[in-house]
């Protein structure tokens, strides 16, 4: 089975305090990491090919530094990687990104295309399904299990309230992968060093025959956008004082509200 996995580099924010400068996220102190959901998708693809043969191709769209996310995936066991890298792509909305990626993969002969359910940055959960429409492929989102078979893949989709469903998709198909589908393997610095000589295919807008005016901010549905930090001081009463004092206060609240002795 020939599998394509779309991956993206994102700033690691789970344990970081964000700073917003003039409506944009200040990236200076943030580490760039593989989008968590995409990492699960890479692992799933590699496992499928380890079990039943085939190859895994990776693709990302991003700036030069984002090549890291491809090296990391190659170290996990992917066989080849392509990097869509062109300033003309900057400021594109998900529909445009889907058109760009479709142009790059349409003749790839992939049986299965995987990507994360969403990205940890803007979390639009859109690009994968939009790409499926561009390519004329069936799709399913929120996969927590994949069972590839002859001519089809059975996808277990996570629904709400602790339930899930099984659906069957004819191949080729596109599936978005939910976190927790597997336990992704550890990637060591040594592992990444080992793949440093693998060639990464570089793709620019010209290579895809895409006109610049059909890309970027000019073609985007968005007129303007800005970020802000959520308001502070709304909500919780913050317990103040030294560690012992704070713990005394918390213990008193637990006793009172929890009926504890």
């Amino acid at each position: 089975m020939k599998i394509l996995v779309l991956v993206k580099n994102v700033p690691e924010v789970a344990e970081a305090e964000l700073e917003i400068d003039q409506g944009a996220l200040d990236l200076e102190d943030l580490e760039m990491v593989v989008n968590e959901w995409d990492n699960y998708a890479v692992e799933e693809a590699v496992r499928i090919t380890e079990a039943s043969g085939g190859e895994v191709h990776l693709m990302t769209l991003g700036n030069e530094d984002d090549e890291d996310v491809l090296r990391r995936g190659l170290a996990m066991g992917a066989h080849a990687a392509s990097h869509l890298c062109d300033e003309a792509f900057d400021g594109s909305d998900p529909a445009t990104l889907a058109r760009v990626i479709a142009a790059a993969v349409k003749d790839g002969g992939y049986d299965l295309i995987l990507t994360g359910v969403q990205s940890a940055d803007l979390g639009q959960a859109s690009t994968g399904v939009l790409l499926a429409q561009e390519l004329g492929l069936p799709h399913a989102t929120m996969a927590i299990a994949l069972e590839p078979g002859a001519g089809e893949v059975v996808v277990t989709r996570e629904l709400e309230n602790n339930t899930s469903e099984k659906v069957a998709l004819p191949l080729p198909a596109l599936v978005t992968v939910q976190s927790g589908i597997n336990q992704p393997r550890y990637v060591s610095i040594m592992g990444i060093r080992k793949v440093r000589k693998m060639t990464i295919e570089q793709i620019e807008a010209d290579d895809l025959g895409l006109a610049e005016e059909s890309l970027g901010a000019a073609a985007s549905m968005v007129d303007s956008q800005s970020l802000a930090l959520p308001p502070m001081g709304e909500g919780a009463q913050m317990l103040e004082g030294g560690l012992d004092s704070v713990c005394d206060q918390a213990a008193a609240i637990l006793r009172e509200k929890g009926g504890l002795a």
């Binding site: 924010v13 964000l18 803007l122 979390g123 968005v222 303007s224 970020l227 802000a228």
Partner: peptide, 23 residues
Amino acid sequence: GALSVQRAVYGGKAMQELALKPA
């Protein structure tokens, strides 16, 4: 005539305000 949108981004650590072009 254009849609303005608020969204939570970066795991709820920031709010995004989008102004769409008229559609």
